[in-house]
Structure formats: structure tokens, C-alpha cells
């Protein structure tokens, strides 16, 4: 995928259910952390990565679409922890 499209215009968006899984995926796609599960495991990609629950994503998405597709999960998942985990990964890795 990355080989085909080049990596300048590619963004990864996650929908992980917990802070820990969000971090695992975020590290996998940024620094190639050896994630123990999933299709991207072991591939170092150096790609920008966000979680769909982060304001960086939410604020630019059509509000009606976001409400229909995602909003309920904000109150179901540990959203603050997920957001913090994503920030931690981005701060520890300069992409």
C-alpha cells in the first residue's frame, strides 16, 4: 500500500477500542514497533497516525456524519485515555 502510493500524502486513522491497542497500532505505523497482532505488525512505516476520537479528526469531519457514525463510542470507550495514548506516541516519535 505504502509502496504503491508513496508516503507523503498518507494518513492512518484508527478506531481502536482501548488506549493500549491504540498505542500499539500507532507505534506500529510510526516506528514499526513489533505489535503482537494485526496486519501491519512489524512494518516500519513512519506514517502520521490519528484516532478517530481525537479532536484533530473530529473537528474537521462533517458533524452530522460524525454523530451518526462515531459519537456513541465517545461515551462508551475510555476516550480521554485513548487521546492521551495517541498524544504520547506522537510526542515520543517525531514523524
Amino acid at each position: 500500500m505504502v509502496d504503491k502510493h508513496g508516503k507523503d500524502d498518507i494518513v492512518v486513522v484508527l478506531g481502536s477500542p482501548s488506549a493500549e491497542s491504540a498505542e500499539v497500532y500507532a507505534r506500529t505505523v510510526t516506528e514499526g514497533d513489533p505489535s503482537w497482532v494485526g496486519p501491519l505488525a512489524g512494518i516500519s512505516l513512519g506514517l502520521p497516525v490519528f484516532h478517530i476520537l481525537e479532536s484533530e479528526m473530529k473537528d474537521q469531519i462533517d458533524a452530522k456524519v460524525y454523530k451518526e457514525q462515531v459519537s456513541i463510542m465517545e461515551s462508551v470507550l475510555e476516550t480521554d485515555e485513548i487521546i492521551q495514548a495517541m498524544k504520547n506516541v506522537r510526542e515520543s516519535v517525531s514523524v
Partner: peptide, 24 residues
Amino acid sequence: KQVIIVGERDGVPGPAIEECVKSV
């Protein structure tokens, strides 16, 4: 942007994120 979506069944599924990014 070109977006790689890694959704999760117990979080936000891929197709739901797809609708969101298409709206942008």
C-alpha cells in the same frame, strides 16, 4: 489525503471511519 483505516469491531469499525473521512 489518502487514508489507511484500521478500525476495530469493538471500537469504531472501518466502514464508520470511512464515512467520516469521505465527508472531508
